[in-house]
C-alpha cells in the first residue's frame, strides 16, 4: 500500500501563509487538466517535504518544504487555483 494522505492534511501548513483555506479551492492540474479541490490531492509526507499529486494523473502539483529559515511552496504542476467568493 502506498503511504499518502489527502490534501486536507496540508491545511495547517497552508493556513500559516494564506488567509483563505486553499484546501477547499479548486485546482487545475497542469498535467492532465483535471479540476478538483486541493483536498483531493494525494499527499505524500514520508519525504523531505510534503508532495501533493493530482489524484487523476499522478503529476506533482505542490511541494511544501518547511526549513528553519523559510516555508517553500512549489506550484509548478498547477495551472490555477479557483476560490469561492468570500462568505461562502
Amino acid at each position: 500500500m502506498d503511504h499518502f494522505v489527502d490534501g486536507n492534511a496540508l491545511a495547517g501548513s497552508l493556513r500559516q501563509v494564506f488567509r483563505p483555506d486553499i484546501t477547499t479551492a479548486e485546482a487545475r492540474c497542469a498535467g492532465c487538466g483535471a479540476v478538483r479541490p486541493v483536498a483531493d490531492f494525494r499527499v505524500y509526507t514520508a519525504a523531505p517535504g510534503a508532495v501533493a499529486r493530482c489524484a487523476a494523473c499522478g503529476q506533482v502539483t505542490l511541494q511544501l518544504v518547511q526549513s528553519p529559515g523559510a516555508l517553500w511552496l512549489g506550484m509548478s504542476g498547477l495551472s490555477y487555483l479557483r476560490f469561492p467568493p468570500p462568505g461562502r
Binding site: 489527502d6 490534501g7 486536507n8 492534511a9 491545511a11 495547517g12 493556513r15 500559516q16 483555506d21 484546501t23 477547499t24 479541490p37 486541493v38 483536498a39
Partner: peptide
C-alpha cells in the same frame, strides 16, 4: 497546536 484547519472534510 495549530488549528482548527481543513474546510473540506
Amino acid at each position: 497546536v495549530r488549528g482548527p484547519v481543513g474546510g473540506w472534510f
